[in-house]
Design a protein around this nucleic acid. Structure first.
Lengths: 239, 239
DNA sequence: TACGTCATTTGCGCCAGCGCAAATCGCAAT
DNA sequence: ATTGCGATTTGCGCTGGCGCAAATGACGTA
């Protein structure tokens, strides 16, 4: 049944979209399965790029670290998403690290295998192009946000992005479906955990969010969207 | 001879690397040539992504604009570089604008044509993946810089990147080979033209750079590299 | 040569958000 | 329960760098 599950994941993965089931079986046959516990490191920054994974179960976090210890979070990866695109694009080493934030099962291929697969299946190469294009565009957007918006807007955008990617409807609102500290939010928004904390407290007071330890629930999506757009009334002393 | 020149450009373009000359001729045969004067717009943000260009002669600037008029510069494109990768990756519209900063000649293909070409030549699809991967990594790097570094370092990084991309050796140092305002530098570094001006003035005083109207020459590459790395002595009142 | 336009420089004041530090809280394990 | 650790909150002071505005300078044009 793991076999079944993995096949279903592969079918749904952007990278393998439109590939015939028969081909998918072959691709699956040359893959390997690997388990990582929460906190384990999948790739370490600057390690040789030797494999590519698709997340089957769990969640990963991609980060970039600076020598002095600071780091930023590039993105989170959920089921069906691809970790290690660097392996596709032929770079020698990983530009960042990838860590499991939940216990995770990954489906993997060696660099050679995946290149072989791509050259045999044009559709997959095309999918890779689409996938990388989308990520590139997302980065452009974030770069723009970071350059032009103030902290409150950026935090709002970050949270909105997370709900879109891993939101779960609950009675109290949309919950981000994995543990997330203030520090994490700060590393995604380009600020400090202190500022995130203050901002969330203010929003909580207004009933826009409802959050606790490592948990964020968005109660009023619309209000958050307004803040993200920068069109919010901008209360004189929101903080 | 334009035909000759274009073929040489295509041969050297990352996108067509490793493609047989014969195939390249065919690819060239289905392309069109287009001239843009300095200041003309090649793509407008949110326009339909209908074509892809390779720069033959000249230089382009890719930007992203926010409704309120602010913009950031994503990158500059010189001879041999690809404008409109969005067309490759199947997005409906351009995520930003592209403008000619010098008089430029571009070699273009329609969206359908380029997709056709890619599906016939796997090597080109692979090149596209490499190309997008490199750009994605560059964006990750810039995002990290913008999140973790202070203005002075970011400006230094920006200038170093530009010299690497379009540097020209002169007796006075390495010159950035196209007109570049303080505002442009600001939009690449995530700051304001005022701060860029102040910073350059300080550097000029120390003999690190030598710049004028729309022109930057780096006299002491090493000093700039140190500043970029954040290891510079950090004079108490550098500004 | 004079003029208009655009780029650049620079002074000055201010404030968003950072850094530090201390207190509190919540969860898990013993 | 108790203890311990990590997450979170919050107060306080400071400052990097922004915003405004005015002056100056460089270049193209008539």
């Amino acid at each position: 049944m793991e076999y079944q599950t993995d096949l279903i994941i592969l079918e749904r993965t952007e990278l393998f979209r439109g590939v015939a089931v028969q081909a998918l079986r072959e691709i699956h046959a040359v893959s390997y399965r690997k388990r990582f516990s929460a906190g384990e490191i999948i790739f370490r920054q600057d390690d040789a790029a030797a494999s590519l994974y698709v997340v089957s179960v769990g969640r990963l976090r991609a980060t970039q670290t600076v020598p002095d210890g600071q780091q930023i979070i590039i993105r989170y990866l959920g089921p069906g998403e691809v970790a290690g695109y660097t392996t596709l694009s032929g770079a020698a080493t990983h530009p960042g690290s990838i860590t499991a934030v939940d216990d995770s099962y990954l489906i993997g291929w060696s660099a050679d295998t995946i290149k072989q697969i791509m050259s045999e299946h044009t559709a997959i190469a095309m999918n890779a192009i689409v996938l990388l294009g989308a990520r590139y565009r997302e980065m452009q957007l974030r770069l723009r946000e970071l350059s032009t918006e103030r902290v409150e807007q950026r935090i709002a955008h970050t949270i909105l992005r997370l709900t879109a990617q891993a939101g779960r409807r609950t009675v109290r609102g949309v919950e981000i479906a994995f543990p997330l500290t203030r520090q994490d939010l700060a590393e995604m928004s380009g600020t400090t955990l202190h500022t995130v904390s203050r901002t969330l407290s203010a929003w909580e007071e207004e009933g826009i969010v409802d959050c606790g330890r490592r948990r964020v629930i968005v109660a009023e999506m619309d209000a958050l969207t307004l803040i993200a757009a920068g069109t919010s009334p901008r209360l004189p002393n929101r903080l």
